[in-house]
Nucleic acid binder design. Structure first.
Lengths: 251, 251
DNA sequence: CTAATTTGTACTCTAACCTAGACAAATATA
DNA sequence: TATATTTGTCTAGGTTAGAGTACAAATTAG
């Protein structure tokens, strides 16, 4: 089932289970209905279900049905948008970082644009994977203008958060723009995050500026949605016209 | 290429182009490299590229290379997290809503839990698709406790935002919790959003409470990331310890 | 002008995937 | 207890997708 209709169905059902669309212990639709929904034969649905059963995400009982099984499955970490990292460490959970790539190269057009560099300028590019208790959950690609990057060493990246390094070297981080989308996992990312190619990932890009408005860091991050979700609390404004974010302390 | 490795590659490249990973006019990796990256033959890569070319997302020149082509392609709408809708209408863009399903049924366990209802309680379920200038971008499934749902009519849903209806009928919306993840498009959603099954979607779930802490609405929304992204501005706190969201007026 | 690079085209072979159907076994329902 | 429902097992057959290879045509670089 390397790539196929069965895999597609497997991935869709997996997302739904992880996302709470089917609650724990709840029955999945019967095989006939799943087949109809996806426009395939029952044999194909059964292969998808077999894969889910192998991960013990479901249990199947002949004559009865197929049921979600989330016994000891870890729930995703809920993180604030504003400072995810402080959040995790504050929770006392062991996160580790692996540096997959590091070097200086010409800035891709999209990065040069975001950071306000001239096309072809040199940037430091690094790729890191962050894991919590051994389970990888994010794939981070960062770009930093060369002059900024030279203020710290490669080894620092594996041990300290990048924003901390930037502040240590005297840069003031004043403002950032962030946008969130979704993206499919390419083979390299899938391998690093221990998932299958074609899984859905949260895509977050962030550009950080100093007080002079110069671009300091450009981040393209991919998160496993089954291990990491962004959560926020909203409160109705006194005026009643808008919602405003409430600052959080805990997950 | 209904489901296959070629399709997988097609979707990955499509996401990258839409997400700005490859900039406009920039060359894609050569077919050999793409084949190596994805672990397939060149013929398979070529089928993926053919599909991209058909949508004129790329142009291919024999002897030269393959290039991103984003001429008249619309950029995704950038929306604030706090009140996306007000945002859109404020921009003066024509959004339309289609009501796909409406009815009362037993609350799924996950919904009953979120709204604080007893298991098996009746809820109103509605499915809507929102489009901007004819292009669908969101698939919204909402659950409302029966008593609350009875305060407005089915026809209202097709014309007014749900939150406005709730306020009109005297409910005060005090607080909401929201979380953002990612999910693959199932066939029904894919058809409604005019995309292919297996595309990556932003998944947002929100639960709205009144001032007494009662659950009023539970929303499960799916967004096309090529048409809709969540954007936010962050500012460094005076203390310098955290980031805080800056309220926005415009995209 | 020449050589290297890159996309375009053509072909064969194979294996994986999917469909379709029928029936068995376990469970739930009336 | 009898009947319907649901998962489990098996078989046969056909279609498609993919690998691999070779070469042609256009473009670029030296």
């Amino acid at each position: 089932m390397e790539s196929s209709k069965a895999r597609q169905i497997y991935l869709v059902l997996r997302d739904r289970i992880a996302g709470g669309h089917y609650a724990d212990k709840a029955p999945l639709p019967v095989e006939q209905d799943l087949a109809a929904e996806h426009g395939v034969s029952r044999a194909t649905v059964r292969r998808a279900l077999a894969a889910l059963e192998e991960e013990s995400l479901i249990t199947r009982r002949q004559g009865s049905g197929t049921f979600v099984s989330l016994d000891g499955k870890p729930r995703p970490i809920a993180a604030d948008f504003s400072d995810a990292l402080a959040h995790l460490t504050a929770m006392g959970r062991a996160t580790s970082v692996q540096l997959l790539a590091f070097g200086y190269e010409e800035a891709p057009a999209t990065v040069a644009d975001a950071l306000g560099l001239s096309p072809g300028a040199l940037v430091q590019r690094s790729v890191r994977v962050r894991a919590i208790e051994g389970a990888p959950f994010s794939y981070l690609t960062t770009y930093v203008p060369e002059a900024v990057g030279r203020t710290y060493a490669e080894a620092d990246l594996a041990s300290k958060p990048l924003l901390a390094l930037l502040e240590r070297s005297g840069h003031t981080l004043a403002r950032a723009t962030q946008s969130v989308g979704a993206q499919l996992a390419a083979p390299d990312v899938a391998a690093a995050l221990d998932i299958e190619t074609g899984s859905a990932l949260i895509a977050l890009t962030r550009t950080v500026f100093d007080e002079a408005g110069r671009g300091i860091e450009h981040l393209a991050a991919l998160y496993r949605p089954d291990r990491y979700v962004f959560r926020m609390e909203l409160q109705r404004d006194r005026s009643g016209a808008r919602w405003s974010p409430a600052l959080r302390n805990e997950a």
